[in-house]
Design a protein around this nucleic acid. Structure first.
Lengths: 249, 249
DNA sequence: CGGGAGTTGTGATAAATGTTACAGGTAAAA
DNA sequence: TTTTACCTGTAACATTTATCACAACTCCCG
């Protein structure tokens, strides 16, 4: 009964007018957040901002550098969720919890600088400034969509789907457009990339090899260069949802 | 470098004090939402509330009945996401989008009644009533956590993880506790259950058979009866995060 | 410059999951 | 009651993904 073919038309509709969260909303939110008293935290390469299970005291906004958001499984496997960068928000989830703990790990991928606001302070501001609450609502909705689309890519297209999805997101967030393709300007090891798909390194490596043989990607130094982004997009029926949704931040 | 063993201690910490969204917050939110002018929509069994790709006009609150939230893949596969019930909120994502469309399908699993509020009306209220915005923020954060934990179960423990996760969620949302186990009071076909894990029906069937042979579950009429919920929880390292997070609503 | 630590690439094999095919069960309509 | 549509269970086989094992490479540091 629920096994219905999806028509193309609805996909197209979905592609129209989907400016999920406008750049200006985002920027205005970050500006508003910076008006809230907080402190600046400096991190060196590899330093943890927090660990999962730690009591959650602060809400963070990244100012410079990149920060991995990851989760550990007891098996020793790592699941990478985000690669936060300038203006990304970190630790938004424990908001308003009575006894909050972080559910992820945040570790600097390079030297980084973040702005830290105490949860009670943020909460007080939210209740005073509805516009701030509304903007945050928009941002979290956007996060939700990001997460959901990745989930879908994985469920419907397998690990390959998760990888392609990750590559597309990386190119939206960190891609430098050159005349013959897109260079992902963040150095990632195979293991790190595998963590984004919850894949074994070896499996990831094989998938990358295939993509290389097929001429979809190549290496430029240690960086991945995507020659045929459309191939990746078609493979997972990407709806071109735009950088605002389809990113890894 | 990121391949770190997760210590048990942090898992335990995570289990303490994680009342993510209090019942009262939830109820107060629903009460607040009902004060906003809207209309009541009646649905008969199998009727669609909306299809993915449709322009999104309304935000819904379920009053009675159950509503499947699903997504279709071009392959014909169906991905089920939620089974919304009384006080569940539907269609929250397109909030504040300039040209919103629904990204899911919502179809009544039984006769159902929902309360529909137009997005612009809701948005106006949100800006006037910060408490409402804050409550909605809490709710959406909770949704985010639900989604995330399912994603993690799937990535880290495969389809079996997705199934166990679904069973646990179903038992949290629709389980009737009997003396020797938990009866999931919603009739679901194998196909419907498979859709929640993005699994082939046959694979799901095999997994269910195994669980039955191992004495973990059994059938009571057409309903699934869980005899050993702890087995399922242990298999996916469930952190007993509580009904407020770990549900399917 | 030469080791070592970390990384990459690949084969062999195992386990998980999907696909195809079909027999039989069940419940509601005719 | 019979028919019909839908659902369940299961076997055989194909594909995907993980695991183990190991050789080769790179880059940093002593």
């Amino acid at each position: 009964m629920l096994q219905v073919k999806k028509s193309i038309s609805s996909k197209l509709l979905l592609a129209i007018g989907n400016e999920v969260i406008a750049m200006e909303t985002m920027e205005s939110l970050i500006r508003q957040l910076h008006e809230i008293p907080g402190k600046i935290v400096m991190l060196h390469d590899g330093e943890y901002l927090f660990h999962e299970g730690n009591p959650a005291k602060y809400f963070y906004i990244v100012r410079t550098g990149q920060i991995f958001i990851t989760e550990y499984a007891s098996s020793g496997r790592v699941l990478s969720l985000r690669l936060a960068t300038r203006s990304s928000i970190i630790g938004e989830l424990p908001l308003y919890e009575s006894n909050p703990v972080y559910i992820f790990n945040a570790v600097a991928q390079s030297a980084a600088e973040v702005y830290a606001i105490e949860f009670p302070v943020l909460q007080a501001y939210l209740e005073k400034k509805p516009q701030l609450a509304v903007n945050l609502l928009k941002l979290i909705s956007a996060h939700m969509r990001k997460q959901h689309s990745k989930f879908r890519d994985l469920v419907l297209y397998g690990k390959k789907g998760a990888l392609y999805s990750t590559l597309i997101r990386l190119s939206n967030s960190y891609g430098k457009e050159l005349d013959d393709g897109i260079l992902i300007s963040v150095p990632l090891t195979n293991q790190e990339l595998a963590n984004y798909s919850g894949t074994a390194r070896e499996s990831l490596n094989r998938m990358l090899s295939e993509l290389r043989k097929a001429g979809i990607i190549e290496y430029r130094g240690h960086l991945i260069f995507i020659k045929d982004l459309d191939y990746l997009k078609e493979a997972i029926q990407c709806e071109n949802c735009g950088r605002e949704v389809c990113n890894i931040e």
